[in-house]
Write a protein that binds this DNA or RNA. Sequence first.
DNA 1: GACCATATTACAGAAATCTGTAAGGACATA
DNA 2: TATGTCCTTACAGATTTCTGTAATATGGTC
Lengths: 222, 222
Amino acid sequence: MFTKVLVAEDYEIANQGIIKILNDKIGIHNIQEAKYCDDAYLKFRKAYNDKEAFELLITDLSFREDHKIQTRASGIDLIKDIRSVQPDIKVIVYSQENRPDKINMLFEKLDINGYVCKGQHAIKELIACVNGVYQNNTVRPPELTNNTAINTMIHLDDLDMMLLEELSQGFTKKEIRTKLKKQKISPNSESAIDKRVSKLFDDFKAKNTTHLVAIVKDLGLL
Amino acid sequence: MFTKVLVAEDYEIANQGIIKILNDKIGIHNIQEAKYCDDAYLKFRKAYNDKEAFELLITDLSFREDHKIQTRASGIDLIKDIRSVQPDIKVIVYSQENRPDKINMLFEKLDINGYVCKGQHAIKELIACVNGVYQNNTVRPPELTNNTAINTMIHLDDLDMMLLEELSQGFTKKEIRTKLKKQKISPNSESAIDKRVSKLFDDFKAKNTTHLVAIVKDLGLL
DNA sequence: GACCATATTACAGAAATCTGTAAGGACATA
DNA sequence: TATGTCCTTACAGATTTCTGTAATATGGTC
């Protein structure tokens, strides 16, 4: 089993919870914790330089903003930076994120080894994940395999996201059209935008713009 | 210090984290945990009947829905039920909720003894809270005292909330007006509703309905 | 080039939104 | 009763939203 693990998670209680599981249930005792990305990187770097490198990184994705100025804003940056130094370190992400496309992105772009959703069954999943990753498997969360939900079906491109963002900020379609023209993004005609938004209505089964934004906010896409 | 504590929290990792803090930092070792409200109540009831009652309950507010059917949906119900049996038990709520009015409601309506926000400084806050509550103090989170934010300033009555809810569900003002008339809620005229919504625009500095709903969703009021 | 599917654009009309003004009712105070 | 304030209602007009139809453009395939 892994003997040396780094845990990066800003929620202290969750941080302690992970350590307790690793301790009690998996028997890993050489654990260091960090509440900030930069702090995590420093601890990683020191261990690496001392030839006592970590074998596994367990990290959250989002770190709440704080008074401390961070060069790394998210766990994604942290993973990239650490992997650029020590490419073979195993990485497990432990996060609230449950959007399949986002989680898949982590596996595809960052080549992470495992993912555990914060939730009711996190202990069992974490244990299974650490064991699986130790055996060189890629461990995706059960939600991902079962859940072929809306998010995966509906493909939102950059323009869709921009439209949703602008609409949620209260801009009229005329204003949005003007912005698009200024940025020389096409399509930028009134009816093209109308069509795009109407398609979003269909996709999300929304009655109007307000409803659409409410749905998308609830889904956490915005 | 307290000697017997019940922890009700459905997120397993957080659950373990709390127990670790109570163990390591406060020296409480007689701790029972529950992942479901009903389970928590049963454990409470058993201890009470065995004359080995809990002295402190630490509970979350929201429990994720699951396949298990629960008679108690939220921590609020749990607190009410437990207090109706053992009125003098101390209660600390540990939750993500950060809306001042909601938190204040807990202190006023449920007479809870302490509140800790899930977050970066939860350990320090939890320790301070348990200590404070043990000394018969009421411990409100630091956020609450500092944050005289929008939420506290803007008073939203039932009609306001209903309007926001209906609008976010994509109903037109005409539809809303019809609903109000059916339920014999006044005011129900088109212009009265317009005025109400316009006031909400002013309050939340929204440009239009869509913007308003987006803001309110972000604030977590809806 | 010819063909097809798809995406963009133009235009138009009904419906809904948003912002005013003005008038009436409820209620408290003097 | 008179006065003032606040809330509700009625109405109107400009703007925006939403939904169509139809023409044009784009990109890929044969």
